[in-house]
Design a protein around this nucleic acid. Sequence first.
RNA 1: GAUCUCGUAGCUCAGCUGGUAGAGCAAUACACUUUUAAUGUAUGGGCCCUGGGUUCGAGUCCCAGCGGGAUCACCA
Length: 572
Amino acid sequence: MNAHLSPEEIVRREALTKLRSHGIDPFPAAEFITTHTSQDCLNQYEEGKEVTLAGRIMNQRVMGKATFADLQDAIGKIQLYLNVDEICPGEDKSLYNDVVKHWVHYGDFIGITGKLFTTKMGEISIKVQQFQLLAKSIKPLPVVKKDADGNVFDAFTDPEARYRMRYVDLVVNPQVKHTFILRTHIINAMRDFFNNHGYLEVDTPVLQNIPGGAAARPFITHHNSLDIPMYLRIANELYLKRLIVGGFEGVYEFSRNFRNEGMDRTHNPEFTVMEIYVAFKDYNWMMNFTENMLNHVCQKALGTSDVQHGNNVLNFKPPFNRVTMTQAIIDHTGFDITGKSEKEIHDFCLSIGLEVNENMGKGKLIDTIFGEKCEKNYIQPTFITDYPVEMSPLCKRHRNNPELTERFELMINGKEIANAYSELNDPIDQLGRFEEQMRLMERGDDEAMFIDHDFIRSLEYGMPPTSGMGIGVDRLVMLLTNNETIQEVLLFPQMRPEKHHQGPDLGAFLDLGVSEDWVEHLPKAGFHSVEELQQAKPTAIHQQLNAYRKKNKLEIPAIQLEDILTWISQIN
RNA sequence: GAUCUCGUAGCUCAGCUGGUAGAGCAAUACACUUUUAAUGUAUGGGCCCUGGGUUCGAGUCCCAGCGGGAUCACCA
């Protein structure tokens, strides 16, 4: 029955039985009311103050009639001092000698009441007077230890295990928990900033008929009643603009987007983008707004405008540098794209060794140059502005140059973090741009966008001049929490489904009446499952098992054919 | 999707040119009433990812698969 359990798991399950037989429910139902957290105890220390708190017991150091342990709650840790005479003032010392010393294990939830004191070694601790098991942990957590110098031993580091069992990761790796707390603080700070400006947080459809607003492969699903294909959203942009048409002055949404594309350290099939649209503004206003917002986020979430990321310190104090796309390319390649034809740019790309092909339009070529030669150089927050019109089908043309658009991307640490436009609100121009996208698609550009006619119709009713900005929340969090992979900032990153290499089910054999002596030998003799027994001839099983017994000189009784027949009858 | 690389005890990892599976921590038992990587003594614990192959013999070599990581392509 317990054949698939590790010895430690068996010990813990046996402890359940022992606890119950002593009248202790290992999973009690009642509320446990705490008065303090571990941090309260440390921050508001008063000798002898009575405190009640709950958490996981993390590290027991049993020293005969006294035991030290760490109690880890949601906030942190505090040391417990469990003394036999304090916990068991009467004759019965069982609560200490049995429960504390033997039936409570690393990882169990306990509730305690006791008095604060300082040990000889100077550590604030709780002298426990009442002790209660709140929930047993029957699977041992990985044990991570730290020495006096802060060196970590046996850290739980395997990425696969950590991502698949994030609950374990969060328990034993405090820095992981801290990252996710920061993530929420960052999002809260953004939300506060927008709300304080009077903008409205909204919800728009996740299930969409047309996957619009970006160029990406969508996840496709099907609606049964309507009998139509539906798509998980790849972006929410077109819906937010419809709301600006509807008369809202400013709307924003933290949008979970889904894209059916590759997965790696910077891509997860679902990811979060914050998009905001504000009426009567342009991209210059949005640059100011964005740098102020990010500085606010850094101050609120991190308490500083100087953010350590890898070997760099990123300075979020406004104003950020602003460089046009044209100037950026001149700065890093010496080539001026102004007024150049598609062929001239194509030839230039070839001359500097970039891989380009005939399907690439002018915008895509320029994008390639920037991506290969310029992007990585912008470590400090920098707005790259005025992108070529071909790259930006939803963006308004530049007021001074119709070949460019009023667009900026915010580059930080050599990567794109935000993207913003003076939004295109001319419905006729917009339709033309969509049609250009269709031509690109026919030419082989699989990133080109679909036409959303209802969106065009909304523009025909009139959209005020508007600036919109989208920011990759996961990537911003990576930046601000000093993480290099998106999996570290998503609680449950997408993983390939777990495959269980199921070992032989010895318990199932026992249930058939196989003797305990024999059960462990069945898989070794070639029978890994009940199904395999069922499919074999009883006489063949009989011969095979006894041949195995003879070959391995087993000191156990030989199998009789009747035994086999009994097993088989048990199956049916 | 391609290439490289890894998969050994609950955790972190050794295991050489193929020859009977190792350490620390964790667990179990005993001792120990202010320890803190507690300590001391003893004990138990392994489908060495899975399936084939080569071999007298495979954790080790070869092939395939599964899973992870890295790089690349696509993308944010």
